[in-house]
Design a protein around this nucleic acid. Structure first.
Length: 234
DNA sequence: GCGACAG
DNA sequence: ATCTTGTCGC
């Protein structure tokens, strides 16, 4: 089982969450990710019961064989509403519960959310990295904060994402002619590594394979929890 | 006060 | 995120 750090009590209110983000922001380490990574994990969550519970899912993707080598899911009751900028407090508990069941330790983890590209430089990808103590990359499908110029239309094109005068990530085109994704460092990673890793993890779709696999995992699992087809009753 | 706002 | 039908295109 993967070891998770125990940093403090989980906040129960928005103000407590914001204060915690400010405190933890100082602990995020931005550094290059060296070596050729092979085991890349993807994390995602789906919601059940009209948002009353969250289903977290993690897959470990072998980049060389292009296969899922391990996966795990966990269903947890939601204790926090969705508030832009505070996504962590709604989703992270479910993700951590899934990681806790994981046997392998991935070399890098991709989160379907922002990392540094956050108003307080503490997006879900950063939090996840602090708990796992593993390099993490934030790869979001839409913008939360920051500005950027126009980028080329070919795969690999990228422009800096800037917020309040500092680069917090990049807008990266993962497929030619397809809408770009917003990449930012989580923990133990830097902007350049985040982009390089994201491109390496993306084969033929807009989002990196690990995230896509994790998304399908939680979607499938949720369907199994809800549906009760007559022909499968045991 | 007004608009923006990851999943 | 979730709800939700058909439709256009490789």
């Amino acid at each position: 089982m993967m070891k998770l750090a125990r940093l403090h009590a989980w906040p129960r209110t928005a103000t407590a969450g914001v204060q915690l983000q400010h405190r933890l922001a100082m602990r995020v380490v931005l550094q290059p990710v060296t070596g050729r990574t092979r085991l890349m994990a993807g994390a995602d969550a789906a919601f059940c019961d009209n948002g009353a519970s969250a289903l977290g899912g993690v897959v470990v993707w072998d980049r060389l064989t292009q296969t899922v080598v391990e996966q795990s899911t966990a269903r947890v009751a939601c204790r926090f509403p969705y508030i832009p900028g505070l996504l962590t407090f709604r989703e992270l508990p479910a993700l951590l519960a899934a990681f806790r069941k994981l046997r392998m330790t991935p070399e890098v983890v991709f989160a379907d959310a922002h990392g540094l590209a956050h108003p307080r430089r503490m997006g879900l990808a950063c939090m996840l990295g602090l708990w796992l103590n593993v390099p993490t990359v934030g790869c979001a499908k839409s913008l939360l904060c920051g500005e950027h110029g126009t980028l080329g239309r070919r795969r690999g094109s990228a422009v800096p994402l800037v917020h309040k005068g500092e680069q917090v990530g990049a807008v990266l085109r993962t497929q030619s002619g397809v809408k770009p994704v917003y990449v930012s460092p989580g923990h133990l990673c830097d902007c350049e590594s985040a982009c390089r890793l994201t491109l390496a993890a993306t084969s033929k779709y807009r989002v990196p394979d690990p995230i896509r696999q994790a998304h399908q995992l939680v979607t499938r699992t949720k369907a199994l929890l809800v549906e009760r087809p007559r022909h499968t009753i045991s």
